[in-house]
Every structure is written in structure tokens, then in C-alpha cells.
Amino acid sequence: MKHILNRTLTSADKRGNNFKNSTSIRVIPRPIFPVLLVALLLASCASVDLNAPMPIFDTGIDPNAWAQIPAGEFYLGQHEYIETTGAYEIMITDVTTKQYADFLNAALADGYVKVAERGEYIAGYYPGDPFHGIEHEIEIKAGDWVFILLNDPSQRVKFNGSSFTVQPGYENHPMTMVSWFGAWGYCEYYDYRLPSEKEWEKAARGPSTGSGSTRPFPWGDEIKRENANFYSSRDPFEDMKTFGSRTTPVGFYNGKTYDGYATLDSKSPYGLYDMAGNVWQWIGDVQPQEGFSDRFMRGGSKDTYDMDLRVWVRNSAPPMYYSPGVGFRCVR
């Protein structure tokens, strides 16, 4: 690189001098800036340590707990339409990596999932979506679909050839790098299901009665860094100079102080944690509009600005999508 840089500079000097002598024009852009920029860009593409040391905290929140959501009205969306749901129960946290690893061990033994492509991914059966052949629609046929990839460096669930374990330190973090099929499969296995958009939003926002029923965030009207894990929220798991944002343990923002880092109690009116930030959560609705093969995601994530943490904000992706910033929880 140094050799190339020298050669470029020399030739640029020569061109500049000739130019100066012949036309008395002095301003000519030299290629040093583009070269430097390309060098910087290449340097910034160097891999980051995805297994950098991480603090371990017990939040005291039980990921096996469920919240009761009574039947009734709530405000849906930014424009506050009154909607109704029946009664249901929803997990108070996202499904953790430990819970998912336990599921995979049980499901593998039952033949509910299988290890495919020489251990590259875990797949399971999905009965398929209706297909209308509408522009941009993806055909989701009945068959085996990827639940999780095993060979991705961001995958925290590990497979040793016979059983699944969790990378130490991530046990109480939300399960990520899981496709919508993987989330659907988990819920289905335990006779649960993924929440509909309405169910998810009601659980995040609370009932239409009482003060603050139109709240934009699960805990109220405003957001502070200590309310949730979002982009550059400066939580103890984040380092924006290297790996950026990482997930926080489920229920982390419960008012406790962790090694001097004080969080605000940010549960929803029904007592759910992480309904804003940390990871986007897969929604169960299939084909909410004819030809719409994407699945919605709600809640914002560690990688999004606070505006995406508002309870009505939607994201969507094809059901085979997976990411370090996408997880799920179930209802029953």
C-alpha cells in the first residue's frame, strides 16, 4: 500500500508541476484523498471481535413467567384507533438463548427439527403460506425451512453434533439469529403461538382505560437512555467504537443498578419487559394483506434509533430473514 501511495503521489506531483508550468493553473485535485479514503474504507471493513468480553448480570426477571392480558379495548397505532382483543397470556420477556437451546434439544430428540447440510443449519417443517402471485410476493411452500443457522459467528446457540448449548454469558440474552420459521416452530412445539400485531401492541401499550393509555413507549411518553437498549444508548454491553450494540439480558431495564449502571423500570402496564428496544420481535400474522409475504416485526432493537421503539412502529422482513437484532416471544 505504501508503495502504491508513493507512486501515486509522485505521479500526481509530476502532473501538477507540468500543469503549473504550462498553464499557470494551480488547483488540480490530487488523488491522495481518494487513495486515503479507499484505504480507510478497507481498514474499517476489518472484522470485529464478535466474542469480545461481556459483563454478566442476573436481572432477577424470570423468562418463564407469563403475563395475563384481559379481553378488552386498547389504542392501536399512531393514530389511536380503538381496537379489541380477547384474553391471552404473553411471555414477560423475549425467549432466551437458553430456552431456545432447550427447545432444540427436545425437538431434535422428537424429530421435530433436523440438522441439515452437514450441520450448517437447523430446519423444521412449515405448512406454507397461501400464494397469490402478486408482484414482489415470495412463494412460501410447505416443507422444511431454516430455523437457525449454526455456522454464523453471531449465533450464540452452539451444536456439538449431538446437543445444543449456549455460548457462556448469553444464557439470559434474547434468542437472536432466528428466522420467523424458527420462532414459529418454537411456539408451535409448546402449543403456543406468535402474537398478532394487535396482541403485541396491546401488551406493550396497555388498556384504553386509565391515564397514559396512548403512551408511545411501554413505560410512558418519553424515552431516556436508561429505559431501553437502543442504538448508542450507552449501556454496559455496548462499544460503538468496535462491535457496536449488543443485546442486554432479558428484563435488564427493571430499575436495578448493575455495577453502577442504574436502569429505569421500563416494564409495560401489563408487566412485560423489553417491549421497546433490545431486539425486534417477530409477529405471527401471515398474509395480513394479500400478497404480502413479509412478516412484521415490532419493538425496535439495539440497532435502531429511539423513534423505532415507539409501540406502533413496524418493521418487516421475509420469514427466512435472521439477524443479531431480531428475536421473539410467544402468546397462549
Binding site: 474504507l41 474499517s44 453471531s154 460503538m240 462491535f243
Partner: peptide
Amino acid sequence: DLALGAVTVFEMKRLFISEAEQQPLVNLL
């Protein structure tokens, strides 16, 4: 052009870098 060139790379970053590894590039951009 420097700023808008960087915006263009930022828009297209998913073509060549994963979410998990993007932070140093995002910082530079």
C-alpha cells in the same frame, strides 16, 4: 461529494458487510 459518497456506501453497506460487523465502517462513514 465526500458526504454523499459516504451516504451512498452507507445505503448499500448490506451488500458487502454484515450487521454484526458493520460498526467500524458505519463510524467512518
